[in-house]
Simulated assay, not measured.
Amino acid sequence: MPIYLCRHGQTRWNQLGILQGHLDSELTELGQQQARILGQQAQALSLDFILCSDLDRAQQTAIIANQTLKLPIQISSQLRERDFGALQGLERGQSPQWWQHYDSRHQQDELAIPGAESASSVWQRAHGALCQLLNQHADRNVLLIGHGEWQRIVQNGLLSYPLHSAYHPIPDNGDIWCLDDLLVEPA
């Protein structure tokens, strides 16, 4: 069962440098274009359905990509981005002490930001979603449309790196990664 991971298209807040977490902003024109390209590229993957985060930016990406794919779309809160608590919706110039903790997120599991979710908590729900997929749809090809930090934590977890590490970069908006490729170590 190939599972393909994709980050949602660019949003207005991505463009402005505002941290989204569980908050949303609309897709930019570029984000909509990335979603259309995703749909075109994904045609070659023989997909059976799309599973996307319940956050609007992921759902909008799925809907636009699906104009080409014509697949069933399922929604899951387990694919939600990491909750960055009080830092969500803020620009770099706001609450600098919390941005320092955000910038050091690759050094520890927990963040000293009120209401922020730990990397291990993200992994628990992500791992649950992946196990459920494997148990219920082992013979189907799936496209997961989610979020950058969520995907980085999944990549770390699958390869047994510290969940909070910066070993894997956050993918670009609209990038597709095959889960099988993540599990094969480079030669």
Score class of each variant (00 low, 15 high):
Ser104Phe: 01
Ser120Pro: 09
His127Ser: 15
Ile50Lys: 01
Ile37Cys: 07
His106Thr: 11
Leu87Pro: 02
Leu45Asn: 08
Pro169Ala: 13
Glu81Val: 03
Ala166Asn: 14
Gly31Lys: 01
Ser25Cys: 01
Arg152Ile: 05
Met1Lys: 08
Ser25Trp: 00
Trp123Ser: 05
Ala86His: 06
Gly93Val: 14
Asn173Trp: 11
Arg80Glu: 12
Thr68Trp: 00
Ile18Trp: 02
Gln67Pro: 02
Glu149Gly: 09
Gly115Leu: 10
Ala116Glu: 14
Gly93Lys: 15
Gly115Lys: 07
His168Phe: 15
Ile63Lys: 02
His106Glu: 03
Gly89Leu: 11
Ile153Val: 15
Val122Glu: 13
Glu29Ala: 15
Ser120Glu: 09
Arg12Ile: 13
Gly39Ile: 12
Pro169Gly: 11
Ile176Ser: 01
Glu26Phe: 07
Asn141Trp: 04
Leu51Asn: 03
Asp83Ala: 13
Ser76Val: 05
Gly115Met: 10
Ser120Met: 10
Ile170Lys: 14
Ser118Gln: 14
Ala138Tyr: 04
His22Cys: 13
Leu133Ile: 11
Gln15Lys: 04
His8Pro: 05
Thr11Gly: 09
Gln20Asp: 14
Ala126Thr: 12
Ile63Phe: 02
Leu45Val: 08
Arg57Leu: 09
Gly31Thr: 03
Gly174Ile: 01
Asp172Gly: 12
Leu19Asp: 08
Cys178Lys: 13
Ala187Val: 12
Pro72Tyr: 05
Ala65Val: 01
His168Met: 06
Asn156Asp: 11
Gln94Gly: 06
Val154Met: 03
Asp172Arg: 11
Cys6Glu: 06
Ala42Asp: 08
Gln107Asp: 06
Leu71Asp: 10
Pro2Leu: 05
Leu16Phe: 02
Gln20Thr: 13
